[in-house]
Simulated scan of single mutants.
Amino acid sequence: MSATTRPSAPTPTAPGNLPLIGHAHRLARDPLPFLTSLRRYGSAVRIRIGPSPAYVVTDPALTRRVLMPEIMEGTIRQTILPPGSPDCRCPPIALTPPASPACGP
Rank of each mutant, 00 (worst) to 15 (best):
L32R: 14
L32M: 09
F34H: 13
L35W: 01
T36N: 09
L38H: 03
L38D: 05
L38M: 08
L38I: 07
R39T: 04
R39C: 02
R39H: 04
G42Q: 03
S43F: 02
S43E: 05
S43T: 03
A44S: 10
A44F: 00
A44V: 10
V45D: 06
V45A: 12
V45C: 11
I47F: 09
I47W: 07
I47M: 13
I47E: 08
R48Q: 13
R48V: 01
P51M: 10
P51E: 11
S52V: 08
S52N: 12
P53N: 08
P53G: 08
Y55W: 06
V56I: 15
V56Q: 03
V57K: 02
T58C: 15
D59Q: 02
D59E: 11
D59T: 02
D59I: 00
P60Y: 04
P60S: 03
A61M: 04
L62V: 01
L62G: 02
T63Q: 09
R64N: 03
R64P: 00
R65Y: 03
R65D: 02
V66A: 05
V66M: 05
L67M: 09
L67W: 00
L67S: 02
M68K: 01
M68F: 12
M68S: 06
P69A: 03
P69H: 05
E70T: 00
E70Y: 07
E70M: 10
E70A: 14
I71H: 08
I71L: 15
M72H: 05
E73T: 04
E73Q: 11
E73I: 00
E73N: 03
G74H: 05
T75P: 06
T75I: 10
T75L: 06
T75K: 15
T75F: 06
I76L: 13
I76A: 07
I76G: 01
R77L: 11
R77Q: 15
R77F: 11
Q78I: 01
T79D: 14
T79K: 11
I80L: 14
I80K: 06
I80Q: 07
L81W: 08
P82S: 09
P83Q: 13
P83L: 09
G84D: 08
S85P: 01
S85I: 01
D87F: 14
D87H: 13
D87I: 02
C88E: 08
C88T: 10
C88L: 02
R89Y: 12
R89D: 12
C90A: 15
C90P: 00
C90Y: 11
C90N: 12
P91Y: 06
P92S: 11
I93L: 12
A94G: 14
L95M: 14
T96L: 06
T96D: 05
T96V: 15
P98Q: 12
S100V: 12
S100F: 11
S100W: 10
